[in-house]
Design a protein around this nucleic acid. Structure first.
Lengths: 337, 337
DNA sequence: CTTAGCACTTGAACGTGTCGAGTGCTAAGC
DNA sequence: GCTTAGCACTCGACACGTTCAAGTGCTAAG
C-alpha cells in the first residue's frame, strides 16, 4: 500500500474537483490522470483517504470531494510555485508603468490580483492616523510598576502598566515624562518611533533604562492607535464563481464590509516557511467566512502588511498562491523603487 | 371606464408584486385590496393597462407584473412621503450622537441608509484633490484664440481653448500668465476659485476682460481635476434580496466597483419637483445596471452631492424614497451644525 | 359599465421509469 | 501481500406524463 500514491490520488481529486466542481469518481480520475493503476486500486486508496477524513462521499455511490483537512494536506504539500505566464507578467508590467501615485499603485495592484485569480483580492494598507500626541502621563504604582498613559489629539486614551528594572522616585518619573513630552508633544503618532531614541538619550545615564522601558511602552501604545485600511477588489467574482456559492454569498459580503473583521483576519495570518499563509474554511473563525479560504502573504518592509485573495473553499490554491506571491513581490519592488 | 380606478389597480399590482415577487392575478388582488369591484372588472382594467404597456403577463394565464413604464407611472404618482417610524428616528438620533468626525458621520449615514432600506446605499463625497498648481501656460493661437494649459503637481495636464473678445499681443498673454501664476502657483486646486478674482483685478484695466476669460477657463480646468469619492454600504443586501436576482448580481457588483460609473450615474440624476430622482431599469444606460433602479437625492450645501440607494427594479420605491430623503435631511443638518 | 360563469392555458408539483456513474466486496492473479 | 477484474447494488439526474391551482379572455346577462 503505497503511501505516496495515496497522496497522489488526493492531489488528483482536489485538482479535478476544483476544476469541475463535481464529486470525482475512480474512473473519471483515471481518464484525466496517469496514475498507472486500475480503478479498483484507486477505489481502495479512496476508502483509506476517506477513513483518514481527507475526502468524503456526499452520498453513497457518488464520487468523493475533499474535506477541509484534505485541502489542508494538499496545500501543505504544494512545493513548486508555478511561475507566472507571459500574459500575467505583461499585465504587471503595464501596471508598473501606469503608476501615478502610491494610491494608484495599490488600487491597481488589488484589481490586478483580483483579475488574475478571479477572486476577491484584499490589501491591507498600514495607515498612520494623523492624530498627534497631546499628552503623556506616568503614574507610579509602587513596586517598580508604572502606568503609562498616552493621550492623542483625537481624544483617544491608551494605557499600559510597565515593570521597571530599578527603583525610581516620583521626581525621576517627572523627568522622564518631561523629556518625552518635550520631543513628542504635537508630533504625529507615526513620527514618534524615530524620536523616542533621541529623547531617551537626553536623560541622565541612571534613568536611561527606565526611559527605555517607558519609551517602548509609548511606542507600543502609539501603534495601537494605528488603524489600518483595506483596499478590496473583485467582489463580483464571488457571485461569478459558482452557482450554489452565489447563494452563500450574503454572509461573505457582510464580512467583507466589516473592515475590522478583515483586518483582524489578515493580521492573524502567519506566514509559513514558503512565505505564504493559507486559511481554509473553518480555520477562519469568523462567521460568514467559514466556507471561504484565504491565501495571503506579506509585502513591503518586513512583510508587515498583507495582501491576499479570498474565495470559496474549493479554490485553485496552487494558482492563487503563486499569483499572490508574485504580485506581492512586484508590489514590494515598486514601493521601494 | 374609470381612469382613476385603473391607476389604483396599477398601484395595487406594483405594491403586491414588490412584496410577493410573484405575478399578481385579478383574484389575489381583490383579497388584499379593497377595490370595491369584482375580479372580472379588474381583469378588464388589467387588459387596458397591458395595452398601455404598463404591465405584462409573463405567460398566458399568469398574473401580471409591472413593466418599467409601469413602475415609472407608479413612482411619478407617489405624493405623500411616508414619515419615518420612531425606530428609524431613534437610529438616526444615535448616529448623530456617536459622530466623531465627518468621515465617521458619512460612513455611519451610508450604513444606516443601507440598513433602513435593505439595499445598497451610496454616497457621493465631493473630494478636493490635494494637488497643487505647478504651472499655467497660455499659448496664442491667432484669431483671438488662446490655449490655456494647467499643470498639476500630480503631473496631470488639463487644457482648453478659449476665445477672447479683444485682440491681445503675446506680451499681454505673458502679463496675464504671470499675474495668475503669482497668486496661484503652489495653491491647491480647491483653493484657486477664491483667488482668481483678486489675481485678475491686479491686471491693467485693458486686460481685465481677457483675464476674466482665461481665469474662467482655469477655474473650469481645476474642477476637472476634482474626482469625487463614493462611500458604499450594504452590498450584501443585493444577494439577500432575491433568489433569482442573486444570479444577476455579478454585473451589478462589477458596476459598483467602478467608482467612475457610479459617480457619473449619480451626477446625472436630476432632482424632480419633490427633490428626488429615480432611475428605473434601463433608464440607467450603464451595462450591468439595466435591471436595477436608483433612488437618490441631494444633500449638503446646494444639494450638490448625492446620496441614494440602489436595488432591483422591483424595489419598494415608496419606502426607499422616504428613507433616502429623511436620511439626506438629517445628514445635511449634521454637516451644517 | 359591471358582473357571473365557463372553457381554456399553463407553470408548478409530483410520481414513475430509465440510465449512468459510482461504490464495496469477493475471488483470482502477479 | 498488493492489485485487478467482475458483479450486484445504490442513488442522483433526467425525461415524461399526470394532476392541480391560478389565471385569463370571452360572452351573455344585469
Amino acid at each position: 500500500m503505497s503511501d505516496a500514491r495515496r497522496l497522489e490520488v488526493l492531489r488528483a481529486i482536489v485538482e479535478d474537483f476544483v476544476q469541475s466542481r463535481e464529486p470525482v469518481g475512480s474512473k473519471a480520475l483515471l481518464d484525466r490522470h496517469n496514475l498507472g493503476v486500475s480503478a479498483a486500486t484507486v477505489r481502495n486508496d479512496m476508502a483509506v483517504l476517506e477513513e483518514e477524513g481527507l475526502i468524503v462521499a456526499p452520498h453513497t455511490s457518488s464520487g468523493r470531494i475533499p474535506t477541509e483537512r484534505g485541502y489542508r494536506q494538499f496545500v501543505d504539500r504544494i512545493e513548486e510555485v508555478r511561475p507566472l505566464s507571459p500574459a500575467e507578467r505583461r499585465a504587471i508590467q503595464s501596471l508598473m508603468e501606469g503608476a501615478a501615485d502610491v494610491e494608484d499603485v495599490l488600487e491597481g495592484t488589488v484589481r490586478l490580483l483580483a483579475q488574475l485569480t478571479n477572486q476577491v483580492a484584499v490589501l491591507q494598507v498600514p495607515q498612520f492616523s494623523n492624530t498627534a500626541v497631546r499628552h503623556i502621563e506616568l503614574v507610579g504604582l509602587g513596586e517598580r510598576r508604572v502606568l503609562v498613559v498616552l493621550i492623542g489629539s483625537n481624544g483617544k486614551v491608551e494605557q499600559r502598566v510597565v515593570h521597571l528594572q530599578a527603583d525610581v522616585t516620583d521626581e525621576d518619573l517627572v523627568l522622564v515624562k518631561t523629556a518625552l513630552l518635550n520631543s513628542l508633544h504635537g508630533r504625529r503618532l507615526d513620527e514618534i518611533a524615530g524620536l523616542l531614541g533621541a529623547a531617551v538619550r537626553e536623560l541622565p545615564p541612571v534613568l536611561q533604562p527606565t526611559g527605555h522601558t517607558v519609551a517602548a511602552a509609548v511606542q507600543a501604545l502609539s501603534e495601537h492607535g494605528v488603524v489600518d485600511r483595506v483596499i478590496m477588489a473583485g467582489t463580483a467574482n464571488l457571485a461569478r464563481s459558482d452557482r450554489d456559492f452565489a447563494l452563500t454569498i450574503t454572509p461573505v459580503l457582510e464580512a467583507l464590509e466589516e473592515q475590522v473583521v478583515l483586518l483582524r483576519l489578515l493580521s492573524e495570518m502567519e506566514l509559513d516557511a514558503r512565505g505564504i499563509a493559507v486559511k481554509i474554511g473553518r480555520e477562519n473563525v469568523y462567521d460568514g467566512l467559514t466556507e471561504t479560504s484565504v491565501v495571503a502573504t506579506g509585502y513591503g518592509p518586513e512583510q508587515r502588511a498583507k495582501i491576499g485573495v479570498l474565495g470559496p473553499t474549493r479554490m485553485d490554491y496552487g494558482s492563487s498562491m503563486s499569483a499572490v506571491r508574485a504580485v506581492a513581490r512586484y508590489l514590494s519592488r515598486i514601493l521601494v523603487g
